[in-house]
Design a binder for these strands. Sequence first.
DNA 1: CTCTAAAAGCAAATTTTTTGCTTTAGTGGA
DNA 2: TCCACTAAAGCAAAAAATTTGCTTTTAGAG
Lengths: 196, 196
Amino acid sequence: MAGWEMDQKQAVMEKPQAAPRPGGRAARIQAAVFKAVDELKQAGEELTVPAIAARAGVTPSTIYRRWGTLADLLSDVAVRHLRPDGEPTDSGDWRADLRLWLEQYAEEMASEPGRAMMRDVLSADRAANACTCSAYTGQQLDVIRQRALARGDTPPETAVLMDRVIAPVIYRILFTHEGADGDYVAGLVEGVLGEG
Amino acid sequence: MAGWEMDQKQAVMEKPQAAPRPGGRAARIQAAVFKAVDELKQAGEELTVPAIAARAGVTPSTIYRRWGTLADLLSDVAVRHLRPDGEPTDSGDWRADLRLWLEQYAEEMASEPGRAMMRDVLSADRAANACTCSAYTGQQLDVIRQRALARGDTPPETAVLMDRVIAPVIYRILFTHEGADGDYVAGLVEGVLGEG
DNA sequence: CTCTAAAAGCAAATTTTTTGCTTTAGTGGA
DNA sequence: TCCACTAAAGCAAAAAATTTGCTTTTAGAG
């Protein structure tokens, strides 16, 4: 069965928008713009380049020159939020950890903000951001998997988890009006854990 | 295991952009605009509302008033093309039919036009179009399934096919740089056909 | 400390989008 | 068939957005 190559070095660690001189002005402006986007979203304001620029204390042309389009900017903002903030919890029982992590993942992605972020990531011309997202996911699953392996256990391949759980969950969220509720996810998880 | 509700009457048959008075002016204009989009895409021209309007011999405000945004228009155009043009071939061997149909489906969706159409469908605010897409897919699978059932055979549930084949294929196409090649699809198909 | 290259600011030009009002086309009733 | 009536299209002006040429600032290298 075909699988996934995670290609961590390449896809995972690259910054959404390569920051040439980190720590300098470029980074400050990027941060200001990203923050502006978040704040405007939060406030429910219209998300336009001029509005974002004003909020960030920056000239619109700066944004246009750096990101090209609003879609690309929003895509970069989305991946930032999609980046996992820590490792999955380690209870000693990898099956429990896996179930828990997947439940939380599904819930987050199915939420309105989650859906919006996915749409933002996919709407950009640049495919790299979408790849980064799935790499993040694979990375997290790998952490749980490695723990299991370290204990001599045989968890399912990451590729299998992507195909059998992640993909169906995301597909449902993106393409149907039924969410990916707890029962659905649990069913998928049992499907893979049942075999090996 | 949780499944899919196809909900055919609701999701499948609804027009992408409800045409109030079919056959009238509204329909003609819609057709002209859709054709204009296709032609401009074909010609590799910039896809802007004014350009589309000009090509369609229509005023831009007509498009803005009817579709709101370019994304919504492109979304409608995309679903139109995603609508299946016929039933899956019937060779008498439903497994072969299924394999063939899935291969073709994967290939079409993985192609650059296919990817673009999916992005267009998903980029619109309106979630209905994405639902329509997956409903189309479920419908086609159901056709193959019904034939098998009619012969007293026991094909996998449509829901299972969606979860185990369609979802992984689409996820891969949308979120990774590896395509969904023939081997990958074949592997997925064997996965479901192997069990029942 | 100066020099350089990259990126930001600014402002004008261009293009796209919105909007108020007028005109036209299709529908239903006399 | 003719006459209203309604929904949608056309038109044009206004508003908003994006692009672009040029100037200024900034961080980093020598």
